[in-house]
Design a binder for these strands. Sequence first.
DNA 1: CAGCAAGTTCAATTCAAAATGAAATGAATA
DNA 2: TATTCATTTCATTTTGAATTGAACTTGCTG
Lengths: 173, 173
Amino acid sequence: MGGESAGYVRGEGRNREQVAFELAVIDFFVAAADLLGVPKSVAILYGAVFASVEPVGFSDLERRLQLSRGSISQGIRVLREVGAIKPVGGNGDRIERFLPDMELRKIVDRWLVERLQRQVGTGRERLRSLARGIPGGRSASGRELRARVRQLQNWHDKAAAALPVVRGLLKIG
Amino acid sequence: MGGESAGYVRGEGRNREQVAFELAVIDFFVAAADLLGVPKSVAILYGAVFASVEPVGFSDLERRLQLSRGSISQGIRVLREVGAIKPVGGNGDRIERFLPDMELRKIVDRWLVERLQRQVGTGRERLRSLARGIPGGRSASGRELRARVRQLQNWHDKAAAALPVVRGLLKIG
DNA sequence: CAGCAAGTTCAATTCAAAATGAAATGAATA
DNA sequence: TATTCATTTCATTTTGAATTGAACTTGCTG
């Protein structure tokens, strides 16, 4: 258990249980992030925030995780931009501490839209101009190529239609 | 047009139209592959086969594309394994030539199953063992963490349920 | 204002995946 | 059997993304 993230987590004054839990959470997010093409360090940071009931600040992360300041700073930026973590004020000091935003839905949805929908959109363009350039006129080979491109368009349309459905299904109340 | 793949395509005795078409097709597949995390060279190879009415052999690819023998060999292997191209016999000579398998559906479906379904499966495991290790007993913090993990499970279940639906939607008759 | 703690930036480094190409294989041909 | 040519294998190289860390800001505190 905890093979992947093990090297990234430090004990640092927390008890065994807490550390083990953090480790397991981080593992989970590292696996998921890998699927979505998100950098490991970002997943580790999110996992650490997610696993902590207390809001977590920069120096907490620096202490608990084996990541450079640079990675922590950039990772935090990404996670904020994406809405995965939220700063909480009201500790008196000037340190920013974060809690996980539990609406994972929004994050995943944003990913779906930015990554898939954009590709689907430009795909439509490409296919159109591609269809215009089919060589071979009304010869047999022209007909064959036209059929192939039609297949591609067909498939593309299905994918485009599926996207909104997926977005709907993933909505979590 | 054809910015990405341009460097990989050679004229080699085909006419302008044909080359331009091949280029556009390759561009399309390179973009799609990038989305699915497939190596570029594999997409290029598939594009070249897809764009040709005549079955395409190793040496054709070697001539037409700026790819090493090694990449061509391995790319062909991947594409065959995955069912994206099919060998056609009957030319008298011993050279293997390929046609694209037009059932893209199967390829995408395989990808969905291997990549997503597997992750979803192991995710369930991880979440279960994770839930068992929640620290804090029946304290307030324990309750909070339990709620968070439940959210994760909830989300995970939705994703698991969405997968078959997607597979259904993408089926192209 | 000097000193310090918190965090950011970005050029340099590291690392893993992809691509290469030279040598090995193996099947057909002479 | 020797030769040739098509393809595969795999150790090395390349490439590009992720990560690091040292220098730099920013704003507090004595």
